[in-house]
Amino acid sequence: MRMRATLAMILGLAGAALFAVSVPFTLVGIAEKRHADRAYVVGFVPGDGCGDAHELYLHVDDGKPMDCVAPGMSGSGRVRLPGFTTDQNDQVRTLAQRLGHDGLSAAEQREIQHRVDELAATVPPSKRPYGKQAVSGAGRIWLGAGMALTGLLGLGATLWLAAKAN
C-alpha cells in the first residue's frame, strides 16, 4: 500500500513537471516555425512603417531595402537574407532597384518574390533559420505535444492509482 502511494506521488510529480515544461516548449516551437516560414517572404511596404516579421522589407516607391529593426538596434538597409551568399543578396538588391526605379507594381513584386524563392531553394538546411538546432519549429511542436501527452498520462495514472487505493 505504501509503495503504491509513493509510486502515485512520483508519477503525479513527474507528470505535472513534464506538462509544465511542455507548454512553453511547444509555444517556442510555434514561434520558430512561424519565423522560419516567413524568413524568405519579402515585405513590400508603401510608407515608412514595417508590417509583419520579415527578414527583408522593400519600399514600394523605389524598391530600396528598408531598415526595419526595433528601436535602439542598428539596421543596415541592405539585403541580407539568412543563408544567402553575398552574390545572391546582391542579385535580389539589383533586381529590386532595377524594377523599382519608378515604383514596384504587383507584377514586379511577384517577380522579386519569385527570385527570392528560387534562391531560397538553394540554401542548405543548415544555413536556414534554426537549421543548426537539433530540434526546432515543427519538431519542437511535436516533441512538446508528446511531452504534454506523457505528462497528462502520468497525472491520469496518479489519479487512477489514488482511486484504486481508496
Rank of each mutant, 00 (worst) to 15 (best):
R2W: 08
A5C: 08
A5W: 07
L11Q: 08
G12F: 03
A16W: 03
V21F: 10
V23C: 06
P24L: 06
G29C: 06
A31F: 09
K33T: 06
A36M: 07
A36H: 04
G43W: 09
G49Q: 14
C50D: 05
G51N: 11
D52F: 07
A53K: 03
H54P: 02
Y57F: 14
H59V: 13
H59C: 12
D62Q: 06
G63H: 00
P65W: 08
D67S: 14
C68T: 11
V69H: 08
V69W: 00
S74A: 15
G75H: 07
G83V: 02
T85K: 04
Q91N: 09
Q91E: 15
T94R: 12
L99T: 05
D102P: 03
L104F: 08
S105K: 00
A106N: 11
A107V: 10
A107M: 03
I112R: 00
Q113Y: 00
H114M: 14
L119T: 02
L119S: 02
A120I: 07
A121R: 11
P124A: 09
P125I: 04
Y130T: 00
Y130F: 11
G137T: 04
I141E: 03
L143F: 07
T150R: 02
L153S: 09
G156W: 06
A157G: 14
W160R: 11
L161V: 13
A163I: 11
